[in-house]
């Protein structure tokens, strides 16, 4: 697969396409730091690399991300 787009980082996530600007960029940054799921980045990834697939819906995506986050040690420390 071609990684030219995903390797570029725009304000916090592997967003293909034009980099985010201004508030959107700051918001994406904060979201990543606090560990909130980034649906836009996921959709952008699927569209760019797996055009044959339909991305999950937002609710489904968020639920999947959150469940996986609290399943294993490694997201939280003492």
């Amino acid at each position: 697969m071609s990684n030219t787009d995903t390797a570029r980082c725009a304000g916090g996530a592997a967003v293909s396409g034009p980099p985010l600007r201004g508030w959107a960029r700051i918001a994406a940054t904060i979201r990543t730091i606090i560990g909130a799921p980034d649906y836009a980045a996921y959709v952008a990834h699927v569209r760019a690399h797996h055009p044959e697939r339909e991305p999950m819906g937002e609710r489904e995506f968020v639920a999947e991300r959150l469940n996986s986050r609290y399943e294993k040690p490694g997201s939280r420390c003492c």
Binding site: N3, T6, R8, C9, A14, A41, Y42, H45, E64
Partner: peptide, 11 residues
């Protein structure tokens, strides 16, 4: 392995 979920290059 970018999948837009676990793996995604970040600043």
């Amino acid at each position: 392995l970018a999948d837009g979920r676990d793996f995604h290059p970040t600043n």
